[in-house]
Computed example of a mutant assay.
Amino acid sequence: MDNSLINGIFSGTIPWFQLLGTTPLEIIATLSAVIGVILIARQNILGWALGISWAVISAWLAFTQWQLVSDGILYLAYIPIQIYCWSVWIRRGKAQQHELFIPTWMPFKNQILISIAALLAIAVWAFSISGLAAKVSWIPEPTLLWRDSTTTVLNFFAQFLQARKRMENWVIWLIVNLLGIHIYWVKEAPIYSIQYAIFLGLGIYGWIQWHQSSRHNHQL
């Protein structure tokens, strides 16, 4: 671990705005992600527009500046997912006049089923990436395979549940963000760990906001 970087972060010698990124596009992408999560936590549909902005910029940076092909493909996948979530909120918000589109928990049976589906998807993803890396020369040998696979797959599940305003999405984001803090710390990228810590706090904020909204609407 680069002790000078860690000391610099906690001593204040590294400007805190650098946690957002070191180039204008990185800063815009990070701000879009942070503000987008806040808006989604407040059930503001504009959060999805900022999510699309973040995904587009991140995909561009991954391909053109960072040479991270796998991450670039993942960011590209986020674009239609964000559009889908946006469209669901628009459709559900307009169509269900007799039933409010509010945050709810899934039935316990569905929670079990989606947990099993997530575990199977993580296993398929991990074995697939490992197999591709062994056969395709331009794909590097994956490190932290299972942890990285878990965060990747759970991202998709969380987005899917968030589109339907299911409270479980915040539980999944909790797992993703805790793993993100750990992964980037192990990979000696503490600034990204701190970013995930910020997202962890925003996820807790989102859960509180949705819980209060759900309780308020059920009391009406």
Rank of each mutant, 00 (worst) to 15 (best):
A133G: 06
K165S: 06
S137P: 13
S137H: 15
F63R: 00
W86R: 14
I198H: 03
T64K: 02
W89C: 15
W138P: 04
I9Y: 04
Q65C: 14
P107D: 11
L5G: 04
N7R: 14
I183R: 10
T152P: 14
L74D: 13
A121H: 00
L120C: 07
N3L: 15
I6K: 05
R92F: 15
I52H: 00
I40S: 13
L61Q: 00
A163T: 13
H216T: 15
I27N: 02
K94E: 08
L200H: 14
S53N: 13
Y184H: 15
M167E: 04
I9L: 07
A189E: 12
M167S: 03
V69A: 13
R166I: 09
L178W: 03
I102F: 07
G51R: 01
I6F: 09
V186E: 10
L145V: 02
W207G: 08
W207Y: 11
I79S: 10
F101R: 09
Y184L: 09
H211R: 12
T23L: 06
R147M: 14
A59Q: 03
F199S: 09
A62M: 09
G8C: 07
N110C: 12
K165L: 06
T150V: 02
S214V: 08
I181T: 04
M106G: 02
S53D: 05
G72I: 07
I114M: 07
I38L: 08
A41T: 05
P190C: 01
D2I: 05
L39I: 06
A33H: 12
Y84K: 15
L161G: 00
L144C: 10
I83S: 13
N169C: 10
I191N: 02
W173S: 06
I194Y: 01
Q212E: 10
S32H: 01
I183V: 11
I208P: 15
S149D: 01
V69Y: 13
L50M: 08
I198A: 11
F127E: 14
L132D: 04
N155H: 11
I139P: 11
W89N: 10
A163R: 07
T23I: 04
Y75G: 11
A33R: 08
I183M: 04
I9S: 07
I181H: 01
E26N: 00
G8Y: 01
E141G: 10
W207L: 12
L100E: 05
